[in-house]
Amino acid sequence: MIEIDGLTKRYGGTTVVDAVDLRVPTGSITAIVGTSGSGKSTLLRMINRLVEPSAGTVRIDGRLTTEEPAHALRRRIGYVIQGNGLFPHRTVAENIATVPRMLGWSDVRIAARIEQLLLLFGLDPQIHAQRLPAELSGGQQQRVGVARALAAGPSVLLMDEPFGALDPIIRAKAQTDLRAIQQQLKTTIVIVTHDMDEAFLLADRIAVLDNGRLLQYDKPTRLLTAPASAQVSALTGTADRALRLLSLDTVMVAMAPGHADGLQLSASMSLRDALSALIWAGVRAATVCGADGEVVGQVTLEAILARGAAHQ
């Protein structure tokens, strides 16, 4: 758990982060969103003390971050930035080994960890481990950046627009991979983004910042159905909020007993994708199949539409 209390940063006379309180539950993903200059990066960087707070405290698993030297703290916290920040003169393996080496791990343990992480991120240790960052594609560099941040098994991972430089297709893949890896490792993640789709796709909770102040910290659904202010609605977007709401649930929640003719959908599909599939096929209902292809029920257009309504 990350506990942030009254966290404030002032530069000269201007307050860029203003008394923010935040509780990030262990093993969850929190997205920080807000317009450019709203203080997202500053807030994030105060968690690992790359920026020293003017006031307020941060506790990680109950321990004040000021209890140890900043560099020792940062070795326990993963940090990923846009453009990945890989060390250009060090190979992929050496980049990943950075923190374990500083922590004094044995060579054997480091080598095993490098191999494990490369495989986890879909890179071939034989091919990629000895390459320099410049010899990788942008998407691969980004994955190595995340692998380096996770190398020493931190319980907390901070990410500042980590996928900002990737093209849409690679970005979508990186996002689903991150989600899968997070579910496997149970890492607590705080991710800064100004891509609202990314926030809704990844986050268990979203923190909305405006001018350094925290407007709302809530589940994605609540941000849509119970926005704290007009600014929150403006930021999350109102035109497609029904569809966004549908994207947050799977077919499972709108399912009813029975089956339909023709179209079959997977139970794990989002309602938004299911709606699209129904419209595309020109039908009003579809059979829902489980992970092994067995029929588990049916879903109708009406049931989906009802889930997209503001008051349920």
Binding site: L50, P69, H71, Y79, Q82, N84, L86
Partner: peptide, 17 residues
């Protein structure tokens, strides 16, 4: 590059490292 220096700080290198 600023991103490389930020990464060096981010991984917890001290000033000498």
């Amino acid at each position: 590059p600023a991103s490389v220096l930020e990464a060096a700080d981010g991984v917890g290198m001290d000033a000498w490292q």
